[in-house]
Structures are given as structure tokens and as C-alpha cells.
């Protein structure tokens, strides 16, 4: 983002673009990456409700893949995932592997 000059700024440091933090990438923080194993997913959506970074995409009530632009790899989703028959639908793998 090009830095603006003082005349171009919104008065009083107000940010008029609601939710523009979505443009900021926090995915690079990750040391571990959650992987979704759809075959073990029971669509409980616990991963979605417990995600601190709004990084579990859900459309029409069904989960999709992770938003890796923002996921910081904390692993809460994998830890909370009940999985199917003892098999987790989310597993954490080391980045770069």
C-alpha cells in the first residue's frame, strides 16, 4: 500500500473502509498448517465457531477450505475437531513440508 501524504488522509485518523484488515495477510505467521480431510468431516462447524481468525470458510452451512491468507496456524480447529470414528478431519502439518 502506497503511503499517503497528510492532505490525503481522512480527518481524525478515521478508517472509513470497514473490515479492510481482510486485505492484510497474517497467513505468513504460520509455522503449522491445518489440513482439512473432508472424508473425516461431519460438518459440525466447531472449527468455524472456534477459529480466532475467521479463517474457516463456510458457504451455505457447509465448510470449505481454510482461508490461508489469514489462518495463523494456532491449531485450535484441529484440537477441537471431533472427526469421524476417531479420525480427525483437521490435522496440523509443518509449513514447508
Amino acid at each position: 500500500m502506497k503511503l499517503k501524504g497528510w492532505k490525503e488522509l481522512e480527518m481524525g485518523a478515521v478508517i472509513p473502509e470497514a473490515g479492510n484488515a481482510a486485505q492484510y495477510n497474517t497467513g505468513s505467521w504460520r509455522a503449522f498448517r491445518p489440513q482439512w480431510k473432508e472424508e473425516n468431516c461431519i460438518q459440525c462447524l466447531f472449527c468455524w465457531i472456534y477459529c480466532p481468525d475467521s479463517s474457516v470458510t463456510v458457504s451455505d452451512g457447509k465448510r470449505g477450505d481454510f482461508d490461508y491468507e489469514h489462518c495463523k496456524g494456532c491449531g485450535v480447529c484441529a484440537h477441537e475437531c471431533p472427526g469421524k470414528k476417531g479420525n480427525k478431519a483437521i490435522v496440523m502439518v509443518e509449513e514447508g513440508n
Partner: peptide, 15 residues
């Protein structure tokens, strides 16, 4: 509350 905020990974507050 969108992603892209800079709370620590695994922070309880944004949950």
C-alpha cells in the same frame, strides 16, 4: 470481525 487482525495465534479474545 474479519481475519487479518493481529491478535496472537490461538488468542481467546477474538473467539
Amino acid at each position: 470481525l474479519t481475519g487479518g487482525h493481529r491478535l496472537c495465534a490461538g488468542c481467546g479474545a477474538p473467539i
